[in-house]
Design a protein around this nucleic acid. Structure first.
Lengths: 189, 189
DNA sequence: GACGATTTTCAAGAAGTTCTGAAAATGTTG
DNA sequence: CAACATTTTCAGAACTTCTTGAAAATCGTC
């Protein structure tokens, strides 16, 4: 091959390589945070390619089955970090990943908060009420244990409520979270 | 049973119940965030009981094997949210969970940052350099794709670096994270 | 409204992980 | 240093989660 074609080819190879590397990294990270590896990989692929892909392209790109691709793409759409796109003259559905990284993380955070934190917080509060005896008469060891138990739960619930409020600000669709972060960083310097 | 003993018994039952409920909740949450269910449960048990327990007590309390208890307790100690405690006149080792909820979360965050975020960030940067061609001569489609790819990676890396800096502040052992959160909340009202 | 194209579903199987239990290692006491 | 107590390790079992692939459903077109 001539020198003229060598460099572009090198660039194309590098791009393919970099994509694969990124997909692997993102998949690993996902799975260490409780997100199915394949789901993270599909997202990574769509994100790094940056343009709409159809199911068959995703299947081929990652070597996964149609069923898996379908399920995973749907989950990503449900989460809101991938959207369905239609192309004129093509019946196939195309999928495009959110390209705004801030928006993407806000969406993910919102989703996990809604699905995991909020129900947990509610359940914790319910659990706490279980031991909310109207009035303790005896000051015996048992009562003390109960009080200590309640204090621990209260601490935990308080913490989680605060964390919840903070995350709420980051999530807010006004994009305030972004500015907030920037401000924090400024003060940090 | 007489009325006099009825209420204390009720309290004891409620406590046992609440503990179990809490342990189940915490275990669930853990597993949805990529922490082995049993590990989260052992932590929950130690946290909610609030005093040192030995391996046999943990085994009995959760119905798990000695091997599992041993491994899991060690991981919790390594993470730094459970500490080993020794009791005079007792050969057994006892384990006590960190009771300060803020400290606990700071420790967990620090651990996960160190183990997962930091390596990822480093790998991402390395991945980014892969496609850092010295100078592009041609303004063809391929070069444009490369540039777009690099922009996407740069956005992502920038975001993660900012998130990293913020989390660093929360983690900082000076406890500043706590105050910071409080301030944020004040402004949020 | 029948046909071909595409997507979705889901039961069965594969893959991955967590757990067990008994053996080995370690530690302690007299 | 023998005897016993306690902890750790790890190969295989048990369990959970993820993936496949083919059948069913859906969709758009003629």
């Amino acid at each position: 091959m001539s020198k003229r074609t060598d460099e572009p080819e090198h660039a194309a190879v590098a791009l393919r390589d970099a994509r694969e590397r990124f997909i692997a990294l993102w998949g690993q990270m996902g799975s260490s945070w409780g997100i199915p590896r394949t789901m993270a990989q599909v997202h990574a692929l769509l994100f790094i390619v940056g343009e709409p892909m159809n199911t068959d392209e995703v299947m081929a790109g990652l070597g996964i089955s149609r069923g898996n691709a379908s399920m995973t793409l749907r989950r990503l759409v449900d989460w809101g970090i991938v959207s369905r796109v239609h192309r004129r003259g093509d019946r196939k559905e195309y999928f495009l990943a959110e390209q705004d990284v801030w928006k993407m993380f806000r969406t993910i955070l919102a989703q996990r908060k809604k699905q995991e934190i909020d129900p947990l917080l509610e359940a914790l509060q319910e659990c706490r009420q279980t031991t909310d005896s109207p009035r303790t008469r005896k000051v015996d060891a048992e009562a003390a244990a109960l009080r200590a138990h309640n204090d621990r739960l209260d601490d935990l619930i308080t913490f989680m409520r605060i964390a919840d409020s903070i995350s709420q600000r980051f999530i807010s669709p006004t994009g305030e979270g972004l500015e907030l972060a920037a401000k924090l960083l400024d003060r940090a310097s």
